[in-house]
Simulated scan of single mutants.
Amino acid sequence: MKKLFAEFFGTFWLVFGGCGSALFAAGYPELGIGFAGVALAFGLTVLTMAYAVGHISGGHFNPAVSIGLWAGGRFPAKELLPYIISQCVGAIAAAGTLFIIWTGKAGNAINNMQAGAFASNGYGAFSPDGYSLQSAFLAEFVLTFFFLLIILGATDKYANTSFCGIVIGLALTLIHLISIPITNTSVNPARSLSQAIFTGGEPLTQVWLFWAAPILGALLAGFIYKTLLQKNDNEDTSNN
């Protein structure tokens, strides 16, 4: 249960911090943090929770990460569903908290006909810059693929894992710097689902892509790392 609570709180913080920065601070007149600030906020949520509870649960905070670690032989199948449920519940709880805060200001309402409403993800007319379904799918697939490669490499027993939380947090920051204009950046099915539930409308019908693309990218990364990149115990680690 401690692992599941750690995943709940870690995913809550990721959604609350990342999506909250997009809702409250990104476009604030003259002092707004913009895309770069939101990207950094997402990275900081993962970095801080990796060190806070990563030693308890492994610090996944993302169904795609759990699935990718399973594909890479780093996570048992029997724990997948409980982790994913905890992550989704944490994300939805964070989105609900954000909704209460957001609607506490006069005039604030969710316009689910607008791209990026309530920090939701989308493609086509619901992409921040109008990117197609194909572009959105490819971006989410590729970015999640590399995110998992980074996670698998940074946490490998042959790596210097002391700084893996920093590496993974910066990787997520870079991912957001690339893709906020494309999809508003997901690479995390729980994060997409939570915002789409409160947004409703077309963003909710498009949430399938933000489950399918990240999961497929994570599966491929796990398979490739395990079969092509991971060193065996009998290999000489001094050889390249």
Score class of each variant (00 low, 15 high):
residue 96 G to I: 01
residue 139 A to N: 09
residue 156 D to I: 09
residue 204 L to K: 08
residue 96 G to Y: 00
residue 83 Y to R: 08
residue 37 G to A: 11
residue 181 P to F: 03
residue 13 W to E: 08
residue 34 G to E: 07
residue 51 Y to W: 14
residue 131 Y to W: 15
residue 144 T to Q: 07
residue 43 G to S: 10
residue 119 A to I: 05
residue 220 L to C: 10
residue 221 A to P: 09
residue 207 V to N: 04
residue 235 E to N: 10
residue 236 D to K: 15
residue 149 L to Q: 01
residue 78 K to M: 10
residue 116 G to T: 11
residue 215 I to P: 07
residue 60 H to P: 05
residue 4 L to I: 04
residue 111 N to T: 05
residue 192 S to I: 05
residue 10 G to T: 06
residue 113 M to R: 06
residue 34 G to R: 11
residue 116 G to Y: 05
residue 20 G to V: 09
residue 5 F to Y: 14
residue 44 L to E: 08
residue 52 A to C: 12
residue 227 T to C: 03
residue 105 K to D: 13
residue 206 Q to L: 11
residue 111 N to K: 12
residue 198 F to Y: 12
residue 125 A to V: 07
residue 25 A to F: 14
residue 9 F to S: 07
residue 161 T to F: 03
residue 51 Y to K: 04
residue 204 L to Q: 10
residue 231 K to N: 13
residue 104 G to I: 07
residue 7 E to G: 03
residue 188 N to T: 07
residue 126 F to Q: 03
residue 52 A to I: 12
residue 89 V to H: 01
residue 167 V to G: 06
residue 56 I to R: 06
residue 198 F to N: 01
residue 7 E to C: 00
residue 212 A to T: 15
residue 88 C to S: 03
residue 183 T to V: 06
residue 220 L to I: 11
residue 186 S to V: 04
residue 31 L to I: 15
residue 67 I to H: 02
residue 159 A to D: 12
residue 24 F to I: 06
residue 127 S to A: 09
residue 207 V to C: 06
residue 150 I to W: 01
residue 159 A to N: 15
residue 138 L to K: 05
residue 139 A to Y: 07
residue 25 A to G: 07
residue 3 K to V: 04
residue 65 V to T: 02
residue 222 G to K: 00
residue 100 I to S: 15
residue 142 V to H: 03
residue 54 G to K: 05
residue 47 L to P: 00
residue 78 K to L: 14
residue 232 N to Y: 14
residue 3 K to D: 08
residue 238 S to W: 11
residue 86 S to P: 00
residue 138 L to Q: 08
residue 109 A to L: 11
